[in-house]
């Protein structure tokens, strides 16, 4: 079992100039559970996700990781870079575009954080990187550079890079959206394994199947607001809000053939 973090989001607001990207978001993410964020593009899902590790700076409200606010020491008072890095060590993130470092092999990509952030000796970092890559099924691809890997393989390396740091919370920003359909499955399988091990996961996704089967709770966002948070079956099968109904109708129409 991994040690799992909880996340508490309270009254979070985020502006880009005059545009309000997030409005008074309240969301509880329990430890060891999978929370999926769904909603139309531009609804603020990714922005909210990125506020959790402070890649995106929220303007007001609080994001608490295990009770400690990230990004600010007190409202309006930014925390030091050192403290922020300390907190980020416990939070893994997986991006839509993988964002592997192209000049390093798969194994070097995974080992980099262990060496630079955790301060492990190179040999130990390499063996732990190998271990993480085995876990995502890429034991035979360790010496490959990202350019020589398929999208699905690259994303699995990215997941290995995150889990090698032994995070207590994992953030996934549309992890399968950039993949060819036949490569989506291998990434979702790895994510399911991670979920079954009790990792706290927050997943921005358009994979309703994943949300329905793996998520413990689903949050629906639209126009920077959190419309509803509930069990997946309630959101996906018996939505009460008209906005969710309309979103799902579009989704089903697009996927019908």
């Amino acid at each position: 079992m991994v040690q799992a973090s909880s996340v508490e989001i309270r009254k979070v607001n985020k502006f880009y100039g005059p545009f309000q990207a997030l409005t008074d978001i309240d969301l509880s993410i329990p430890p060891g559970k999978v929370t999926c964020l769904i909603g139309p593009s531009g609804s603020g899902k990714s922005t909210l996700l990125r506020c959790i590790n402070f890649l995106e700076e929220y303007d007001s409200g609080e994001v608490l990781i295990d009770g400690q606010m990230i990004g600010y020491d007190a409202p309006g008072k930014k925390m030091s870079g050192r403290k922020l890095r300390e907190m980020r060590r416990g939070i893994g993130m997986v991006f839509q575009q993988f964002n592997l470092w192209p000049h390093m092999t798969a194994q070097e990509n995974v080992a980099e954080g262990l060496i630079r952030v955790r301060g492990l000796p190179k040999a130990e970092a390499a063996s732990r990187a190998a271990e993480a890559l085995r876990k995502v099924g890429l034991a035979d691809r360790m010496a490959n550079h990202p350019a020589r890997l398929s999208g699905g393989q690259q994303q699995r390396v990215a997941i290995a890079r995150a889990i090698a740091m032994e995070p207590k919370l994992m953030l996934f920003d549309e992890p399968t959206s950039a993949l060819d359909p036949e490569l989506v499955g291998e990434v979702l399988t790895v994510m399911k394994t991670l979920a079954s091990e009790g990792m706290t996961m927050v997943v921005v996704t358009h994979e309703m199947g994943f949300a329905a089967h793996v998520a413990d709770q689903v949050a629906f966002m639209e126009a920077g607001e959190l419309v509803a948070v509930d069990a997946p079956s309630r959101i996906l099968h018996q939505p009460e809000d008209a906005r969710i109904q309309s979103f799902l109708r579009t989704y089903h129409e697009r996927n019908a053939f």
Binding site: L55, R85, R89, W101, G113
Partner: peptide, 26 residues
């Protein structure tokens, strides 16, 4: 790509390491 810098920030790399290991070589 900004994402490659963000990936380094997200795992808690210090800015000096990011410059030396990611920004400069790429």
């Amino acid at each position: 790509p900004k994402g490659q810098i963000e990936a380094a920030r997200a795992i808690g790399m210090a800015e000096v390491s990011i410059i030396r290991r990611i920004l400069l070589p790429l």
